[in-house]
Simulated assay, not measured.
Amino acid sequence: MTEPELNSNEMAKKRTEMAEHRTDLSEHRTSLSEKRTEMGEVRSSLATMRSHLANERTHLAYMRTGISLISFGITINRFAWFLIDNKTMSRYGHSFLHDTKDLGIGMVFLGSAMLIWSLFNYRKTADAITNNNYTPSNRSVLAFTLALILVGVASTVWLILS
């Protein structure tokens, strides 16, 4: 054999080795891609769970607020009735205590409305997270916030004028 034939055979052998090495690398890359896909699915699943847990925490916060409003409203209402029955605040007149009693009822109503709204908001958000089409509901939060501000301003004006 001549020198160029040896080089040609050696080169063919090297090419075959390199092709085998590329095949091994390709198989390795395929397994890495599969692992990345599995990890992505796990991350996506964890992100969905975190979103559901955050939704639940938000719902519980709304529930605590609603229960606090109801409790405080009942307390105000019952205390006003106590003062009316004992005539302790007779110098302020009966209408002041009657208005205070109505304020307590209003707070109970507002707290109950918040509990009902929080349940519907929780279900709507949970379904949207599950269906992967969640968009924040700014209108409902804005409406409820404005209602609370209105009640606060009305109560302040009522306290100043009474």
Rank of each mutant, 00 (worst) to 15 (best):
D102F: 05
A80V: 00
I67M: 10
N86P: 01
F79W: 03
I67W: 09
L110Y: 06
M63A: 04
L83R: 04
L148D: 05
V153G: 03
S68Q: 09
R57W: 12
T48P: 04
E10Y: 14
L146Q: 02
T30Q: 12
T125P: 00
K101G: 12
S44L: 09
T130A: 11
G104K: 02
A143M: 08
A80W: 00
H21P: 02
T75Q: 15
T58C: 02
R29Y: 07
K35Y: 06
A54T: 07
L150W: 09
D127M: 10
W117P: 02
S95L: 08
G111I: 01
L161M: 14
L148H: 13
F72S: 06
G66Q: 02
H94L: 03
T75E: 07
A61W: 11
N132D: 14
T58A: 10
P4F: 07
T135E: 13
S33Q: 12
S26W: 03
W158I: 07
S33C: 06
G66C: 01
A154Q: 04
D127S: 12
W117A: 14
D24H: 08
M11S: 04
I74C: 08
S112Q: 02
A19R: 10
E27H: 03
E41G: 09
R57A: 13
L32D: 07
G66S: 02
S44M: 08
L142F: 13
L161Q: 07
I84V: 08
T135I: 09
N77V: 02
N9W: 09
V141N: 11
N86C: 05
A47F: 10
L161D: 12
S95R: 04
L115H: 03
T16W: 14
G152M: 11
M63K: 15
H59Y: 14
E5G: 03
L83D: 03
F96V: 09
F72E: 04
G40C: 14
S112E: 04
D127Y: 07
A54M: 08
E20S: 14
N77I: 01
H28L: 14
L53Q: 15
G73M: 03
R15G: 04
D85G: 05
P4I: 06
L53I: 13
V42A: 14
K124M: 05
T37E: 09
V108M: 05
S8W: 11
M107N: 01
F144I: 00
R123K: 13
M18A: 11
H59D: 00
G40V: 06
I67V: 15
S68I: 10
M1H: 07
R64Q: 11
S155D: 05
T37I: 12
T65R: 05
M107E: 01
R91W: 05
E56P: 01
A154E: 01
V151A: 15
W117M: 10
G111T: 05
S162F: 06
L119S: 11
L103A: 10
M49Q: 15
